[in-house]
Amino acid sequence: MVKEIERAGLPVVHICTVVPISLTVGANRIVPAIAIPYPLGNPELPREEEKALRRRLVEKALRALETPVDGQHVFED
């Protein structure tokens, strides 16, 4: 899906837990996520801390969308 969205001309960032799969399917902007059942959360954290964690990931994704890349790039910290 991510590749066809990019092929259509829309920049896309893939927030995903299993980065090797994302690399294999051909995502270009990749943000590693937390865990498979909660890629953008952590149920062990208090609600506000969990949301702050999620916000950091989304902000990283937005920065990825603002960053020129010339191939596949995994946006670590």
Partner: peptide, 26 residues
């Protein structure tokens, strides 16, 4: 199938003036 869904979604998003996409996977 996934490619087909991605292409169809992209066409609709482009037609509606979307700039960029955040796609999440578990």
């Amino acid at each position: 199938n996934a490619a087909r869904y991605g292409a169809a979604i992209a066409q609709e998003l482009k037609a509606d003036g979307v700039t960029a996409v955040i796609l999440t996977s578990t």
